[in-house]
Simulated scan of single mutants.
Amino acid sequence: MALVAGPLRADAPFVPQKAGGVVRLATYHAELTRRGPGLLLGDILKGDPQVEAVAALVAAARPDILLLTGVDHDGAGHALSALAEVIGEAGPRYPHRLALRPNSGLRTGLDMDGDGRTGDARDAQGYGRFPGAGGLALLSRWPLGEETDLSELLWRDVPGAVLPVHPNGEPFPSEEAQAIWRLSSTGHWIVPIRLPGPPERHLTILAYAATPPVFDGPEDANGLRSAAETGLWRSLLDGALDVPPPEPPFAILGRANLAPSRGDGRREAIGALLSDPRLRDPEPLGESGTPVTADFTDPAPGDMRLDYVLPSADLGIRGSGVLWPETEGLELVEAASRGRLVWTDVEL
C-alpha cells in the first residue's frame, strides 16, 4: 500500500494517540460506491488508489468502533471483508463487522419522485442505481450483540410524521407510494457492542445515514425526509417507538446530511439533536479549527459539517477531531473521499 507511506504516521499531529482505558468512536463517509454491483469488491482486490487511501486514513485514526457510510453492500459481505483486510494490513483489525441490507437502491416498482417514470435510481426506497448502493458498514474490535434494524419503519408510521404533498394537498407522489415509503433512505441500526471487561460492559451504537435534503421540488420531499431521519433518534430516546430506548451508555454515529448553521435542509432537526440533554456534542475540529466534515467546495455549497459522533451524556469526552490536515497528509485525505473522518474518544 504505497499511499500509506510518509504522510500518515501513527503520530501524525491530526491523529493523536488514544489514552489507555478510552474507546475511540468514529464515522467516515468514505464514498466507496461504484456504478454497479460487485465493482467495489473488484476495486478492493486490485488495489484501487481510492480504496487504499480510505484504508490508510482508517489505519491512521485507529478507531475502536467505526461506522462507514457510502459503502456498497453485497449480501455475502465479501467487499466489507476485503476492505477490513486491507485496513488491517496497516492498522487495526476489525474481526466484528455488520452490514445489513440498506434501503438504498431497493426497488419499489413505483414512481417515488413524481416524475411520471418508474425504475430510476430515485424510485428506489433510497436513492441508488442498484440494490445495496452506498450502504452502511459497522466495524468493531469487540463483539457485536443482537442488532435492532429500524430500516423497514414506514415514514408515515413515525410519531409526528410530516410527509410531502402536492400543491393541491394530495399525498406526494401518490397515496400508493406513501403506503410503502420507508423512512430510512439507507438504514437506522441499534447495535450493542460488548466492551472488554471485567466488569462486562456494553456500549450501544445508533447508526444511520440520511438522504441529502436537496434534489427535489417544491414539495421538499428530501428535505422533510432528511429531517425526519435525524429526528427519529429523539423519538427513540423519548420512548415513542415500538422499540425500547437504549440504556446509557450509547452513541449516535453517522451522516445526518444536515449542517447546524448553513446549507439547505431543515437545520432545526440537527439543532435539536445537538442540543438534546441526553447527548453530548464534542464539537470536533480539524487542523484549521473548524468542525466541517465534507468538502463540497467544487461544486458548491462549500465545506459543511454533515457527519457526527454524539455520545450519551454519561460518557466522558477525552478528545475529538476531524481528519482534515492543512498540509501534511492533505493529498491522501483528498484522494480518499469528499468526506472527512470524525473521531471522539470516550471514557465510560
Rank of each mutant, 00 (worst) to 15 (best):
R117F: 12
G119A: 04
P102G: 09
H29Y: 06
R62I: 02
V243W: 08
G70A: 13
R9Q: 04
A82K: 00
A26R: 08
A26K: 09
V346E: 12
P299V: 06
G126M: 03
L253Q: 07
E31M: 04
G286M: 10
E334T: 11
L237A: 10
L98R: 03
Q178S: 05
G70I: 08
D149R: 01
V86R: 07
R194P: 00
P159W: 05
P284M: 11
L279N: 05
S275N: 15
A76E: 15
D295E: 08
A137M: 10
L139M: 15
I205G: 02
E176Q: 14
H78D: 14
F250S: 01
G6I: 12
G114C: 10
G91H: 08
G21T: 13
L195K: 12
A84V: 09
G126K: 02
Y208I: 00
P7Y: 12
L306H: 04
P37Y: 01
P102C: 08
D307G: 10
G239A: 14
P95G: 11
W189Q: 14
I65N: 06
P192R: 08
E52I: 04
T297Q: 11
L100I: 02
Y28I: 06
G36I: 10
L45T: 10
V54L: 11
P246L: 00
G6V: 13
A161L: 06
P245T: 11
L273G: 07
A161G: 00
F296R: 00
E146R: 12
A2G: 15
L203T: 05
G316K: 11
L241Q: 11
A137V: 03
P102M: 09
R266T: 14
S312A: 14
P95L: 09
P301Y: 06
V322T: 12
A269M: 10
R9K: 01
P212Y: 02
A240W: 00
G160D: 12
G329Q: 13
G42W: 10
P102K: 07
P301H: 06
L144V: 05
L330Y: 02
P199G: 07
G42N: 13
G88W: 01
V22S: 13
P37M: 03
V243E: 15
L206N: 09
A272D: 13
Q178R: 07
H73K: 07
E200C: 03
A2N: 15
L153V: 05
L39S: 13
M304G: 05
V162A: 08
E52V: 05
A79G: 11
Q125E: 15
D11C: 10
D149F: 00
T118L: 01
P171G: 03
D242S: 14
L80Q: 05
T118Q: 09
R101L: 04
H29C: 07
A300G: 15
A10Q: 08
F172I: 03
A227Q: 03
V191I: 06
S104D: 10
G105S: 15
D314V: 13
L45K: 09
V58Y: 02
Q17M: 13
A161D: 07
H78W: 08
A30L: 14
L206R: 04
A55V: 11
Y28P: 00
G286L: 08
F215V: 04
Q50R: 15
G20L: 11
E331R: 15
E326G: 15
